[in-house]
């Protein structure tokens, strides 16, 4: 097993793919922090499912499989999906959860219809579009990896440059508006970043599970720190680690989609954080609880001692 992994690491192509997946995990982890703080974690899931019809239409119109075109198709579909959600919640009594569910499954249904159309039309059998459901990092070619590199650097760089603005919008949009920040624009920008992260992630992780790359590392990081900057760094590291683990394991085992392995790696990191996180982790809480109990008992005993002595003196 270990020899196999080392063998894979020596292959230059695999090195590129590994790097691409790590950067992807890094940038989704960073974007995910903002999504988590803005209570929009499941938005990533909706955007990913909604991207499917966009990708299919882009493929049907052009007949080529290029990540740039897919990005445009998925971006437009994501835009329609977010508009749909906000319209449904604004103009009817349905709440956000139902609106997201409707848009997510409705778009995915349309996407499946288009996907089967492409597959039945013959040209699609080699298109490899079905790999998009669960991701297959091994099927990426060097131009895909190059796009992923550029996009990941762009995402991480923009978050670094706009850190202050995005932070303010995530924590207190009302105050940000009062200070004269273009809040609506920044919110749209964050949504746009999320669409990009999701679309680029689809090829490595797949439509169904790409949301986990946005959610799980961010939540894991939240267990270790209370500072946004630190949380973003940690979340990025967790994301990169899961991406690396998923890619390596999937390359070592034949016939294994990358997405589920990456997600499981992220979940493993989450479980460790859930247990071992300082102050918020389950173990730390248990210890705190026991200590508080012991202190309380000790305090009661100290109080209890003078009581009989007082009784004697009277």
């Amino acid at each position: 097993m270990l020899d196999e992994l080392l063998e894979i690491l020596r292959d230059p192509n695999a090195q590129w793919i590994l790097l691409g997946c790590m950067l992807l995990g890094l940038s989704s982890g960073i974007i995910g922090c903002f999504a988590y703080l803005r209570k929009q974690s499941l938005m990533g899931d909706t955007l990913a499912h909604a991207a499917l019809p966009g990708i299919c239409i882009a493929f049907m119109l052009t007949g080529t499989k290029s990540i740039m075109l897919f990005l445009i198709g998925a971006g437009l579909a994501g835009l329609v999906a977010t508009l749909g959600i906000s319209w449904i919640t604004k103009y009817s009594k349905l709440k956000t959860d139902a609106a997201m569910g409707i848009v997510l499954t409705g778009f995915f249904g349309i996407g499946i219809v288009l996907l089967t159309q492409i597959q039945h039309s013959g040209s699609g059998s080699q298109s490899g579009l079905d790999k998009f459901l669960f991701g297959q990092a091994a099927s990426m070619v060097s131009s895909d990896v190059a796009t992923m590199l550029v996009v990941s650097l762009f995402l991480s760089g923009s978050c670094w440059l706009l850190f202050k603005e995005l932070k303010l919008v995530s924590f207190d949009p009302g105050f940000a508006r009062g200070l004269g920040f273009p809040v609506a624009f920044l919110e749209q920008l964050l949504m746009f970043f999320m669409v990009i992260a999701v679309v680029v992630g689809i090829q490595a992780v797949g439509v169904v599970l790409v949301a986990a790359l946005l959610i799980t590392p961010a939540v894991s990081a939240r267990y270790w720190t209370d500072r946004l900057g630190m949380m973003m760094v940690l979340s990025g590291i967790f994301g990169a680690l899961s991406g690396a683990l998923g890619t390596l394991l999937s390359a070592a085992a034949p016939n294994m989609p990358t997405g589920p392995l990456t997600v499981l790696a992220a979940t493993l990191l989450f479980s460790v954080s859930l247990l071992a996180g300082p102050r918020k982790g389950l173990i730390a809480r248990r210890v705190q609880h026991l200590r508080a109990k012991r202190e309380h008992l000790a305090a009661r005993e100290r109080q209890a001692v003078p009581a009989p002595s007082r009784g004697v003196s009277q």
Binding site: Y36, K39, Q40, S41, L42, G44, D45, F134, V208, L209, A211, A212, I215, T216, A218, V219, R222, N255, M256, P257, G259, P260, L261, V263, L264, T267, F270, L274, K280, L282, R285
Partner: peptide, 28 residues
């Protein structure tokens, strides 16, 4: 334990779904 409800939904279902896909792929 302090995770927002939508994020905890996301973590749980992606993890379990991933386990399912792996189980099926392993025994395909």
């Amino acid at each position: 334990s302090g995770v927002q409800s939508d994020a905890s939904i996301g973590i749980v279902f992606t993890a379990l779904f991933a386990v399912g896909v792996i189980l099926i792929s392993l025994n395909a």
